[in-house]
Design a protein around this nucleic acid. Structure first.
Lengths: 207, 207, 207, 207
DNA sequence: AATGAATGAGTATTCATTCAT
DNA sequence: GATGAATGAATACTCATTCAT
C-alpha cells in the first residue's frame, strides 16, 4: 500500500506467476515433462522471460519444491493444535497423511524421488527443511516419552520408525501398490496404530 | 559353427542381448538416460533393429523390469530355506532388504516409481508378480499365526503392515533421507523388530 | 556401375551435398555464422538429417576444412610440372598465391584462424596435411640447394622464411591491409623475389 | 568525496569502466565469448546501461580495438629512442614483435581478423591509425636510404616487404603453425635479417 | 544516467519413430 | 531379420536489443 508498493508493479507478480505455472505443470504432468517452454507458455510469457526471474531450470524447480515444503509445514504445524502430547503425535501422523494425499505430486518429489530421477540434487535448503520436520517429530515423541506414553528415552531412531512406516504406507499407496478394498485412510491409521503399539504407545484411542 | 547355430537364427539371442544392453544401461545410468539409440549401439545393432523385437521403448523397458522381478523372486525364495516359520518370516524380511540394497536401481523402478516417471503404467504382468510376492508373504505370516507366533487371524493387512514398513525404511534409505550414523542393516533389522512387536510377534531372536 | 553401386543410392550423394552446403555457407558467410540449421536448409534436408552423416558440428566443419586441404594440395602439386628446380620453387610460390586468392575463405580458416576463433582446434589430420605441405616446400628448397641456386644447407628454417613471407603478404592482403594501387599479383611476385634474394637465390627470372 | 567527484557525474568514468571490462573479457576469453551481458556484469552495471554509452556491441568492440592501437603506438614510438637510423629500423621490427607477443589478442583483432570474424569492418579510425604506422615505418626506411644503408629510393613498397614478413612470421606463430624447437624471438630476428638482406641492408649487427 | 522487463531469433543436440529397402 | 535415411518435435539456453520508467 506504500508508494513503493505501487511503483514496483508486477515484478513480484510475474515471478509468482511463473512459479505457479511451473508448479501446476509439475503437479499435473510431473517433473519429467516440465520444460521452460511449457512453463513460459502457461504463464503467458516468452520462453526467455522466465530466465529474467530464475537463473535456470534447476533454480525454478527448486523454488517450486520450496513451495512444496512451505505447504508441508503448514500441515504439520496444524498438529500443534492438539491438546495433549498423544493427540499432537497422532495429529502429526494424520497431517503427514493429509499432506501426502492432498498433494501427491509434491509428496513425490519431496520424499519419493531418487537423486538421478530428479536430476535436481536435493538442495541444501530442502535438506534443512527435512531436518526441521524430523526435529518437529522428535519433539512430539519426546513429549510423549516425558508423559510416560512411549518407552524412553526419546531418540531420532524412534522418529525414524514412525516416519518410515508412514512413508512406506503412503508411497506404496501413491505408486499404486495398494489395492482399494479398504479406504486408505482407515488402513493408514490402523497400520500406524500397529506401529505405535510396537513402540510401546499407551494411549489406545486413535483420532 | 554347428548346423543348429547356422540354421536357427539368433532371434532369441538378439532379443536377449537387447534386453541385457538395456538393463546394463539402465542399471548404470538410470532410466532417464536410457535411449533406444544407446541400447542398440551397446547391443551392436542398428537402432531400428530393436524395433524388430520390441514394439517401442516402453515395451523394452517393461521387459527390463520383468527381469528385475525375476531376480526379486530368486531372493525371496531363498527365505524358504529357513527351518521354522519364524525363521522363514524373518528371512523374508532380510531377503527383501538384500534385494533392495544389492539392486537399488531395480528396486527403484519396481517399487519406488510413480506412473509418469516410468511413463509405463505397471504392466499386468508386473502386477501379477507383485501379487505373487504378497501371497508369498501371506503364507509366511499365516504359518506364523498357525504356530501361535503372531496374533491371528492371518490377513493381507498384516502383510501390508510388514511390507509398508520394510519399504518405508528402504525407500527413505535409497533416496538419501537416512543419514549414515548407524549401518543401515542394523537399523533395518531393529526397526523391523519394532514393527513385528507391534504385530504381537513372540519370537525374540532376530537372525 | 556395378549392381552395388546402383543399390546404394544417394547416400554418398547426401553426405557430399551436406558438405557442399556447409562449404558454401562457410565460404560466403564465414565459420562464425555457419549453423547446422542453415546447412541443412541449404541442403534441402531436415536439420537432423545432417546428424545422420556427421557426428556433430565440429565433425562437419572438419570435413569442410579437409576439403580445403584437398584443394590446396591440388594447387601445390601443379608446381611439380615445372621443368627445373628453380622453376618448381617459383611455381610453388605462385601456386600458394593462386590458392589463397582463388579460395580466400579456405585460406582463412586453414592458415589465418587462431584456435579460439575457430573453436575447432586444428585436427590431427589438418596438422598432418600442413606438415606434408612444409615437407613439399622443403623438397623444393633442397633441390635448389643441390643445384647450387640457394645457399645451403637446406633447412626447415629456409622453408619458414619463404612461407612466412608469402603468408604475410597474402594475409595482409586478404584482411584488407594492402591498398590496391598496384595489382596484388605483381606486388606478391616482386616481394617474393626480394625475399629470395635475401636467401641468396641465383636465378634472376621470375615466372 | 570532493565536490568535483560529486557534481561531475562519472559518465566518463563509467564509459571507461565499460571499455575496460570489455577489454578484459575480450583479452581473457576472446572476441567470440564477449557479450554485452558479461561486460555489463563485470562493470557492475545493468546490461542496458552499456547502451547508454555505446550504440551497440560493434561500437563497443571498436572502442576496445582503438585501445589496442593506442598500446601498439606506444610500442612503436619507443623505437625512436634508437640512436642511428639502422638502430631505429631494427628497433621498430623488435617493437612490432614485442607488441604482438605481449598482446597477442590485440594483435589478432588488429591485424589477423577477417571482416566477418569481427563483423565490424575496420573503422575509419583504425584505418587511419594503421596508415600512421605505415608512415612511421616509411620514415625509418627513408632515413636508412638517406644514410646509404638501404637501396633507394625509399618507397611504401619497401615498407610492405618488411611489414609482410614480420606479420607473416608473427601470425604463423600466433596461430600455432610454428613449432617451438627454436625460441621464436631468435627465429624472428634471424628471419627479419634475411629479409633485410634481400632489401640490400648494409648493417650487419642485429640488436 | 541507469534500470528491469520482456522479446524473438538463434544455438547445438537428443530422441522416438516411420518408411523403404 | 536387419539396415540406413530421414523426420519433426522437443530441450535448455544465449544473445542483442527495444521499451517504458
Amino acid at each position: 500500500m506504500s508508494p513503493a508498493t505501487v511503483s514496483a508493479p508486477n515484478q513480484q507478480n510475474t515471478k509468482t506467476r511463473i512459479i505457479e505455472s511451473a508448479r501446476d505443470i509439475y503437479l499435473s504432468e510431473g517433473l519429467q515433462s516440465l520444460s521452460m517452454r511449457k512453463v513460459a507458455k502457461q504463464a503467458g510469457l516468452s520462453t526467455m522471460a522466465t530466465y529474467r526471474h530464475f537463473e535456470n531450470k534447476d533454480d525454478l524447480i527448486s523454488h517450486v519444491i520450496m513451495e512444496g515444503f512451505r505447504i508441508f509445514q503448514s500441515y504439520f504445524y496444524k498438529a500443534l493444535e492438539g491438546k495433549t502430547p498423544a493427540e499432537r503425535l497422532i495429529l502429526s501422523a494424520d497431517s503427514y497423511y493429509l499432506f501426502a494425499t492432498e498433494n501427491p505430486k509434491y509428496y513425490e518429489v519431496m520424499f519419493m524421488s531418487v537423486s538421478h530421477v530428479t536430476a535436481t540434487a536435493p538442495s541444501e535448503q530442502a535438506q534443512d527443511l527435512i531436518r526441521a520436520s524430523i526435529q518437529f517429530l522428535y519433539d512430539r515423541v519426546a513429549e510423549c516419552v516425558d508423559a510416560g506414553l512411549l518407552d524412553g528415552p526419546a531418540s531420532k531412531r524412534q522418529v525414524l520408525h514412525l516416519w518410515s512406516h508412514s512413508h512406506g504406507l503412503i508411497s506404496l499407496y501413491l505408486s499404486g501398490h495398494i489395492d482399494g478394498n479398504t479406504p486408505f485412510k482407515t488402513l493408514y491409521q490402523e497400520s500406524m496404530a500397529v506401529m505405535m503399539k510396537g513402540l510401546g504407545f499407551k494411549k489406545e484411542k486413535l483420532s
